[in-house]
Structure formats: C-alpha cells, structure tokens
C-alpha cells in the first residue's frame, strides 16, 4: 500500500483515478491547488506524486511545481513524479519543446490524457517499485 498525492483540478477525472488506485490498496489524496502541495508533502512524504501540468491560474503550473519539489528538501527530491496531463509533447502553450526535456523537467514518467487505467496502474506499480529500490 502506498500513499499517492494527486495534484489535479478536474475532480471528475481525479475521483475516477482515485477509485482505481484505491482498489489497488493505495491511499490517494487529491489536491487541486499546486500551492498546497509542498506543505502537504512536508507533513507527510508521499510515495508518488501524480501531477497535472495545466491549472486554471497557471498554464504551466505543473512544470513549476515539479521543479519546486526537485529543489525542496532532500527527502522530497526523491519522490517520483508522474505527469498525467492533456498537454502532449508537442503542444506549444507557453512553453517550448525543450521544456519537457528530461534533464530540465524532473519527472519520472509521463502519461497523456485520456488514459487507459491498465496503463496507468502499470506505470504506478513500476514507479512505486523503483521508488522502494
């Protein structure tokens, strides 16, 4: 059982994902505002962060948050981040192609919406196993 923090503003989508991951015995906490994520992570370190990129107030807020997590306290830097977003690798909305370069953006993996739940579960399991190693 793992503790997963899901940062996403679309509750209809998030609740469905939480149901699927909950059925796999994971505890999923939903946060809709990126600003609240780091304080929450400091209170309790998650095993995985599932992160959207576009938020209503900041079209590339997910990118910014991923970098913040990476530059925060050492215990949080190692938390794997799975980007789960409608933004795809070639979508030029305020950021350029190099923005999704692995070296620049500290995310462990990337999944594009709409997502197949079997693929999502496989990714989550893989990332959690890697995280334990």
């Amino acid at each position: 059982m793992a503790y997963i923090l899901m940062v996403e503003d679309d509750l209809d989508f998030t609740e469905a994902v939480a149901t699927v991951l909950g059925a796999d015995n994971h505890e999923v906490q939903i946060v809709s505002e990126p600003a609240k994520v780091i304080p929450l992570m400091k209170e309790r370190r998650p095993d995985l962060v599932i992160l959207d990129v576009m938020f209503p107030e900041d079209p590339s807020g997910g990118f910014r948050l991923a970098r913040k997590i990476h530059n925060s306290q050492p215990s949080l830097q190692s938390v794997p981040i799975l980007l789960l977003t409608a933004v795809n690798a070639r979508f030029p909305l305020g950021f350029s192609a190099e923005d999704i370069d692995d070296a620049w953006l500290p995310a462990a993996d990337f999944l594009e919406k709409p997502v197949d739940f079997d693929v999502l579960r496989e990714k989550v399991t893989g990332l959690l196993e890697k995280s334990v190693e």
């Binding site: 679309d10 209809d12 989508f13 469905a16 994902v17 699927v20 409608a86 933004v87 979508f91 909305l93 919406k113 709409p114 997502v115 197949d116 739940f117």
Partner: peptide, 15 residues
C-alpha cells in the same frame, strides 16, 4: 486541447 480534459473525465468514468 481544452476538449481533452472533459473528455478524459468521461473516458475515465466509462472505464
């Protein structure tokens, strides 16, 4: 792109 988010929610709930 804006279509993708609501559509992702529909698809997720159908699944």
């Amino acid at each position: 792109h804006e279509l993708k988010s609501p559509f992702a929610a529909i698809s997720a709930n159908a699944q």
